[in-house]
Design a protein around this nucleic acid. Structure first.
Lengths: 349, 349
DNA sequence: AAACATCGTTGAAGCGCTTCGATACATCTC
DNA sequence: GAGATGTATCGAAGCGCTTCAACGATGTTT
């Protein structure tokens, strides 16, 4: 492996000069800089990551903790992870992938060893065991998701409450008076992952204001479960004329079941999905949906965590990053072919 | 941050002793070891990753390159990634996540900087631009997937050719004589990703031996595309009595479409899927399937790459790891409810 | 009892980089 | 033209760890 010293010798300068050319932390004459850069290219020099981390006390690595639960919709997670990795690279950082296996200890290990400069936590629960460690940690962290108590934390998330409200509003405007919510798996609510509850609350709140009745049923996304959920909904509220689907996995089965039962979308029943754009457009009927901006979430998480890291070793003396910061991305509802006016009740004009 | 030296002072020994306690590379008396371990615990010591990497010339990090193409079925990728991360952690390593954005250069950068000790490459194309860099690299690498020329490389993959043969065989045994393959998106074949072609070839080969006709049509997995593919298949070969689905995304739409068309599974038409177990069991009909052993692939990749790393700095002097090694996991077909005997031709007894 | 291993421990030399003065020279300023 | 100011470069001190050679203290062999 080529070292800094070899580059310096090759270029006829001192090691520190090469270092300053690399970091730009001191002015270097154009002549010298070009000579050094040439040597770097010719020798195929790559700075040694370990040595750098040791000397500068920063690794240029961001840890991404992704406790992969089997009941979470994977593609969204993946999209976030990719966005995080890509954005991080654009800013000269790499991403270390941590799974849930190791438990909260992973936070301590990674921070303690200086392996990562910062952390991004995904799939945050309302009462997450990682939070106390994050609060105590000297390294900046950003959560993707919103815990029950976000004090002293930085969080990025879709504004799920607003998402719920938006859905309710759209359906109310179309004249629907009985709306069902096909939610996430029961386990998701039990674990008290925030987003599912917040969406539901948003729907209920706005629906109440607009005089719309809401029926919520969990659903794990399998065909069978979706069939059961749907049956229970129509059983309990035969007048249901619109469905809000929060569980991406249930979308396909649901559309299939509705067709099977002879309920036309959107003539007999309107459907709104909360899902990535791609999922919404790939169905048999293009779905009216609120997009889950996975990329945006990943990107913002990196930007925020790097801003915190910058503030930490920048001018702001101490306690920087200890403030609470919650960034909720505004939901965007796109009307497509799956929602329409509520059918006039049988027997009415 | 607590350092080795502080632990040493606290325990009343020299720094090297603490180091040897940690690494176990020299015998340390039980008394001393316990005292050191106690100090480590009391002070909450975590070895500094950068310093370690610098001094020992190994980072304990494995790079995972995952060029995420939008036409690949994401959940499988994700499952592999998680398995890699988990297995790596079990063996004291961390995983660095690299996306495709950076291009083949990423290989050079990561290897050159000593950031990672080893590499695992996913989503390998038949003529992959990363291969030459990998061959030249002094660090061990393992591919998940099989390129056209695997010489000097270590590869892990499902034996897709055998998978195809297995499918053909099962259907032939049930008496099917006209079989369709709903394949991956056309782009997947154009890019010449190996697995899709190998599966198809396996199907064709065995089908030919058993006197079964095969019709292959690509499909991008959207509802519309699946509908088109299916229509073309029945149009061209009305006698088709079995379908092999290689594209996971097409499974849901396909079952839905068949039902709509009044084709019962498996009475009128048999379906075999090549997909993860979970996907196979969550459909409206439990699918006969060949499992994609994502976890196993991730795990084996880590084991192989670490074995190579061990051999590299172990006794084997030079060139260790330059041998070609291809590990194809044997496919496993599980018969469920979606395959049955071929229907007797109309008009026959 | 002398010679020789063996065991457990230590001191010191780096690993390759960053960064803080210090230095040398050129340019201004009054 | 003496001092102040600025610009470009260098030397050297570390960052926290691993590892090698060496050492004293035991135990073993003759």
């Amino acid at each position: 492996m080529v070292t800094l010293a070899e580059v310096a010798r090759h270029a006829g300068v001192s090691a520190s000069t090469v270092s300053y050319v690399l970091s730009g932390k001191r002015t270097i004459s154009t002549r010298t800089r070009e000579r050094v850069e040439k040597s770097i290219r010719e020798l195929g020099y790559h700075p040694n990551a370990g040595a750098r981390a040791l000397a500068s006390n920063k690794s240029n690595i961001i840890a991404l903790m992704m406790p992969l639960r089997t009941d979470m919709y994977v593609p969204v997670m993946m999209e976030i992870a990719i966005a995080v990795a890509t954005t991080a690279r654009e800013r000269g950082h790499d991403v270390l992938l941590l799974t849930g296996q190791e438990g909260p200890e992973a936070v301590r290990r990674v921070v303690g060893s200086g392996l990562a400069d910062a952390m991004i936590l995904m799939d945050v629960e309302l009462e997450d065991t990682r939070l106390s460690l994050v609060r105590e940690s000297p390294r900046p962290a950003v959560l993707i998701g919103l815990p029950a108590d976000p004090s002293e934390l930085t969080c990025v998330d879709l504004d799920f409450a607003a998402t719920g409200r938006l859905c309710a509003e759209h359906l109310a405007e179309l004249g629907h008076r009985d709306v069902a919510v096909v939610g996430e798996a029961a386990a998701v609510y039990e674990r008290r992952t925030g987003f599912a509850e917040r969406t539901l609350q948003g729907v209920r709140e706005r629906a109440a204001e607009l005089g719309v009745r809401v029926l919520h049923r969990p659903c794990d996304g399998s065909y069978e479960s979706t069939a059961g959920t749907l049956a229970r909904i129509f059983d309990e509220r035969p007048a249901t004329s619109a469905v809000i689907v929060q569980n991406e996995a249930a979308i396909g089965p649901m559309l299939s079941l509705l067709r099977q039962q002879g309920r036309a979308v959107p003539e007999d029943i309107s459907v709104i999905a909360v899902c990535p754009e791609q999922v919404a457009t790939q169905q048999s009927v293009a779905l009216t949906s609120v997009a889950i901006p996975a990329q945006e979430m990943g990107r913002r998480a990196v930007e925020l965590v790097m801003a915190k890291a910058g503030a930490a070793d920048g001018r702001a003396p101490t306690g920087a990053g200890a403030e609470t910061l919650i960034e909720l991305l505004p939901p965007q509802l796109t009307v497509r072919a799956s929602t329409g006016p509520a059918p006039t009740p049988t027997g009415a004009p």
